[in-house]
């Protein structure tokens, strides 16, 4: 039971005609891990999940589950469970029948089905709704029913395709926490597809960031946040996203607003670079580079300031009150350790 749920995707390519939806994906997911596939829509994360589930076949490449090649196997031969974005509950069956369906298909003895259904329903707190039809449930209850149906069979792999995106904001936060607890208590490997970087950051042990059919970066969320390895990841992770300024390097630093700003990395002078600074890393310092406040977005406990620095926009997080007024002039500085540098031609981190 302990070592179940090792997933290896090797050089997965998926073509739709001449269009390459996936351009060679390599992922290894460890048993018991909560792994997120993160990326904007059309980036290939859902395609990857469908290939892993056996709903689509890759054009080339291999899929191994617990070391066994399942590339050509049907979904039902793979011993996996999945929660769909739309939940895909069977509308003509009661909640209990929905949850029992995977067990029935696995030819579980009748006597064992009812207790297993009740146990799974209790885990997601819908054991009082077993006789209802899906149409009589709220969105949150439907989502739980889909979860129960997925966990009842104790499959080795648990796939979740944007399972929270149809819930309203409050419920989404609460369910997120429960989902994490559930996965921990079951100890099952989970693969989670989302376009919401906050969900991936909070839920995942590790994540893969997708872009245009390729994986930009795989790593722990904190590591990806701290050191995005390309411009795309930098622009995608974090809210609000990282500021990216195109400029040139100087000896031991970069040019920002006409001033030399020292950086940690060693750079030859005079090359084009993209400088990334997180809004939370912008420091307000009267001795710094002058900026103009354009718009103030008050979040209550802090504010996002839309600034212009020498004509280029810059966003900063600001948590000192009173807040500055729009049109006011302030000054900012950057610490060398907060500056991310990228190559503008390759997009890679320097």
């Amino acid at each position: 039971m302990t070592a179940r749920g090792l997933v290896q995707l090797e050089k997965i390519v998926k073509k739709h005609g001449s269009f390459e939806a996936l351009k060679g994906i390599d992922i290894e997911i460890r048993p018991g891990e909560f792994f997120a596939l993160l990326g904007p829509s059309g980036s290939g994360k859902s395609t990857t999940l469908r290939i892993l589930a056996g709903l689509d076949a890759p054009t080339s490449g291999r899929i191994l589950l617990d070391g066994k090649d399942v590339t050509g196997a049907d979904a039902r031969a793979r011993d996996i469970a999945m929660v769909f974005q739309s939940y895909a509950l069977y509308p003509h069956m009661t909640v209990a029948e929905n949850i029992a369906f995977p067990l029935e298909m696995a030819k579980t003895p009748k006597a064992e089905i009812a207790p297993a259904v009740r146990e799974a329903a209790a885990k997601v707190k819908i054991d009082h709704l077993l006789d209802r039809k899906p149409g009589q449930l709220s969105g949150g209850q439907q989502q739980r029913c889909a979860l129960a149906r997925a966990i009842v069979r104790k499959a080795r792999l648990f796939l979740l395709d944007e399972p929270l995106s149809n819930l309203d904001a409050m419920l989404r936060l609460a369910t997120r926490v429960e989902l994490k607890k559930l996965q921990r208590s079951l100890g099952v490997t989970a693969v989670y597809v989302t376009h919401d970087q906050e969900e991936a950051m909070t839920l995942a042990d590790r994540m893969a960031v997708f872009r245009e059919g390729e994986i930009c970066q795989i790593g722990r969320p904190a590591d990806v946040f701290a050191a995005p390895n390309c411009i795309e990841v930098a622009a995608f992770i974090g809210s609000p996203p990282m500021n990216l300024l195109t400029t040139r390097s100087t000896a031991g630093g970069v040019l920002i607003g006409g001033r030399h700003v020292p950086v940690a990395a060693s750079l030859e002078a005079g090359r084009a670079v993209v400088v990334g600074v997180r809004p939370s890393a912008v420091r307000f310092d009267p001795a710094g580079i002058p900026v103009t406040v354009e718009v103030v977005e008050n979040l209550g406990d802090a504010a996002i300031l839309d600034l212009t620095l020498d004509g280029t926009p810059l966003r900063a997080r600001y948590d000192r009150f009173p807040l500055p007024r729009e049109g006011e002039t302030m000054a900012v500085s950057f610490a060398p350790e907060d500056i991310h540098l990228f190559d503008p031609t390759t997009g890679r981190r320097i």
Binding site: E10, K11, V13, G54, D56, A57, P58, T59, S60, G61, R62, D69, T71, G72, D74
Partner: peptide
């Protein structure tokens, strides 16, 4: 099924999985 000796995309030797699935 013989195991692919290299990790390169297999060309010959075994059936294309997409074809197998679609074939079913």
């Amino acid at each position: 099924m013989t195991k692919a000796t290299t990790l390169d995309v297999p060309v010959g030797g075994r059936a294309d999985p997409a074809r197998m699935m679609e074939g079913r």
